[in-house]
Simulated assay, not measured.
Amino acid sequence: MRPNILIPPLQIGLGLQLHHLLGSRALTDLLHSLGFNSSYNEVQCFEQCAASSQGTDLFGVSSDSFIKFLADNVDHNLSSLEGLGTFHGMGIIGAATPSEKLSRLIRRDTSVTADPIPLFQLIKD
Protein backbone atom coordinates (compact mmCIF):
# COMPACT_ATOMS: atom_id res chain seq x y z
CA MET A 1 0.00 0.00 0.00
CA ARG A 2 1.34 3.43 -0.90
CA PRO A 3 1.00 6.13 1.75
CA ASN A 4 -1.53 8.95 1.23
CA ILE A 5 -3.29 7.09 -1.58
CA LEU A 6 -5.75 5.05 0.47
CA ILE A 7 -7.16 5.57 3.94
CA PRO A 8 -7.66 2.12 5.47
CA PRO A 9 -11.18 1.80 6.91
CA LEU A 10 -10.05 0.06 10.10
CA GLN A 11 -7.59 2.85 10.98
CA ILE A 12 -9.99 5.71 10.22
CA GLY A 13 -12.79 3.85 12.02
CA LEU A 14 -10.70 3.39 15.16
CA GLY A 15 -9.63 7.04 15.02
CA LEU A 16 -13.24 8.18 14.68
CA GLN A 17 -14.34 5.97 17.57
CA LEU A 18 -11.55 7.31 19.82
CA HIS A 19 -12.41 10.89 18.90
CA HIS A 20 -16.10 10.29 19.54
CA LEU A 21 -15.65 8.52 22.88
CA LEU A 22 -12.69 10.37 24.39
CA GLY A 23 -11.99 13.45 22.29
CA SER A 24 -8.29 13.16 23.18
CA ARG A 25 -5.92 14.46 20.54
CA ALA A 26 -2.90 13.18 22.48
CA LEU A 27 -4.20 9.59 22.64
CA THR A 28 -5.26 9.60 18.98
CA ASP A 29 -1.86 10.88 17.84
CA LEU A 30 -0.02 8.46 20.13
CA LEU A 31 -1.86 5.47 18.67
CA HIS A 32 -1.29 6.92 15.19
CA SER A 33 2.46 7.01 15.80
CA LEU A 34 2.26 3.31 16.74
CA GLY A 35 0.33 2.55 13.52
CA PHE A 36 -3.03 1.62 15.04
CA ASN A 37 -5.23 4.40 13.69
CA SER A 38 -5.35 7.53 11.56
CA SER A 39 -4.02 10.86 12.78
CA TYR A 40 -6.19 13.39 14.62
CA ASN A 41 -6.02 15.80 11.68
CA GLU A 42 -7.14 13.06 9.28
CA VAL A 43 -10.05 12.16 11.59
CA GLN A 44 -11.18 15.79 11.72
CA CYS A 45 -10.86 16.11 7.93
CA PHE A 46 -12.99 12.97 7.47
CA GLU A 47 -15.67 14.23 9.88
CA GLN A 48 -15.88 17.60 8.10
CA CYS A 49 -16.04 15.97 4.65
CA ALA A 50 -18.72 13.53 5.85
CA ALA A 51 -20.81 16.32 7.36
CA SER A 52 -20.59 18.47 4.24
CA SER A 53 -21.36 15.55 1.89
CA GLN A 54 -24.44 14.50 3.89
CA GLY A 55 -26.33 17.75 3.45
CA THR A 56 -30.00 17.72 4.39
CA ASP A 57 -31.23 14.87 2.17
CA LEU A 58 -32.39 11.53 3.56
CA PHE A 59 -30.52 9.09 1.33
CA GLY A 60 -31.73 5.52 1.01
CA VAL A 61 -35.38 6.52 1.47
CA SER A 62 -37.69 6.38 -1.52
CA SER A 63 -40.76 8.56 -1.98
CA ASP A 64 -43.12 5.68 -1.14
CA SER A 65 -41.44 4.95 2.20
CA PHE A 66 -42.98 5.54 5.59
CA ILE A 67 -40.75 7.44 8.04
CA LYS A 68 -41.39 7.44 11.76
CA PHE A 69 -39.31 9.63 14.05
CA LEU A 70 -38.81 8.41 17.62
CA ALA A 71 -37.52 10.67 20.40
CA ASP A 72 -36.81 10.28 24.08
CA ASN A 73 -35.10 12.24 26.80
CA VAL A 74 -33.16 11.46 29.95
CA ASP A 75 -32.72 13.44 33.17
CA HIS A 76 -30.05 12.53 35.70
CA ASN A 77 -29.63 13.80 39.27
CA LEU A 78 -32.63 16.12 39.32
CA SER A 79 -32.95 16.06 43.10
CA SER A 80 -29.75 17.99 43.89
CA LEU A 81 -30.29 20.87 46.29
CA GLU A 82 -28.26 23.47 44.43
CA GLY A 83 -29.29 22.36 40.92
CA LEU A 84 -25.69 21.75 39.83
CA GLY A 85 -24.42 18.54 38.33
CA THR A 86 -27.66 17.73 36.55
CA PHE A 87 -27.82 16.36 33.04
CA HIS A 88 -30.57 16.54 30.47
CA GLY A 89 -30.13 14.75 27.17
CA MET A 90 -32.35 14.07 24.19
CA GLY A 91 -32.02 11.70 21.27
CA ILE A 92 -34.01 11.22 18.10
CA ILE A 93 -33.92 8.53 15.44
CA GLY A 94 -35.76 8.11 12.16
CA ALA A 95 -36.93 4.68 11.03
CA ALA A 96 -37.98 4.17 7.39
CA THR A 97 -39.76 1.21 5.89
CA PRO A 98 -39.14 -0.09 3.28
CA SER A 99 -35.58 1.11 2.94
CA GLU A 100 -32.52 0.22 0.94
CA LYS A 101 -29.05 -0.16 2.37
CA LEU A 102 -26.75 2.23 0.58
CA SER A 103 -23.08 2.94 0.95
CA ARG A 104 -21.94 6.45 0.23
CA LEU A 105 -18.47 7.41 -0.89
CA ILE A 106 -17.03 10.31 1.12
CA ARG A 107 -14.67 12.32 -1.03
CA ARG A 108 -11.57 13.64 0.71
CA ASP A 109 -11.46 17.39 0.24
CA THR A 110 -8.89 19.35 2.21
CA SER A 111 -10.57 22.65 1.35
CA VAL A 112 -13.61 21.80 3.51
CA THR A 113 -13.59 23.66 6.80
CA ALA A 114 -15.97 23.64 9.73
CA ASP A 115 -17.46 26.99 8.62
CA PRO A 116 -20.18 25.77 6.17
CA ILE A 117 -21.40 22.90 8.39
CA PRO A 118 -23.68 25.06 10.63
CA LEU A 119 -25.36 26.33 7.44
CA PHE A 120 -26.94 22.88 7.00
CA GLN A 121 -28.74 23.40 10.32
CA LEU A 122 -30.14 26.71 9.01
CA ILE A 123 -31.37 25.02 5.84
CA LYS A 124 -33.26 22.36 7.84
CA ASP A 125 -34.98 24.87 10.16
Rank of each mutant, 00 (worst) to 15 (best):
N4E: 06
P9L: 08
Q11P: 02
Q11H: 09
I12D: 05
I12S: 03
G13D: 10
L14Q: 05
G15M: 10
L16S: 10
Q17C: 11
Q17M: 12
L18F: 15
H19N: 10
H20G: 03
L22Y: 05
G23I: 00
R25I: 07
A26K: 00
L27T: 05
T28M: 08
D29N: 14
D29H: 01
L30W: 02
L31I: 02
S33C: 12
G35D: 09
G35R: 03
S38E: 12
C45H: 13
F46P: 03
Q48D: 08
A50Q: 13
A50G: 07
A51P: 02
A51Q: 15
S52L: 10
S53K: 14
Q54C: 04
D57R: 15
D57T: 14
L58G: 02
L58I: 14
L58Q: 10
V61M: 07
V61Q: 06
D64M: 04
D64K: 12
F66E: 09
F66S: 08
L70M: 01
A71E: 02
A71S: 04
D72S: 04
N73R: 12
N73C: 09
V74N: 05
D75A: 10
H76D: 06
H76F: 13
N77T: 06
N77V: 09
S79I: 01
S79T: 06
E82K: 06
L84C: 05
I92Q: 03
I93F: 05
I93R: 03
I93E: 06
A95F: 05
P98E: 15
P98A: 09
P98L: 08
E100F: 11
L102E: 10
S103M: 05
R104Y: 08
R104P: 00
L105F: 15
R107N: 14
R108H: 11
R108K: 13
S111Q: 03
S111R: 06
V112H: 02
V112S: 00
A114T: 05
P118N: 10
L119H: 01
L119I: 01
F120C: 07
Q121I: 03
L122C: 05
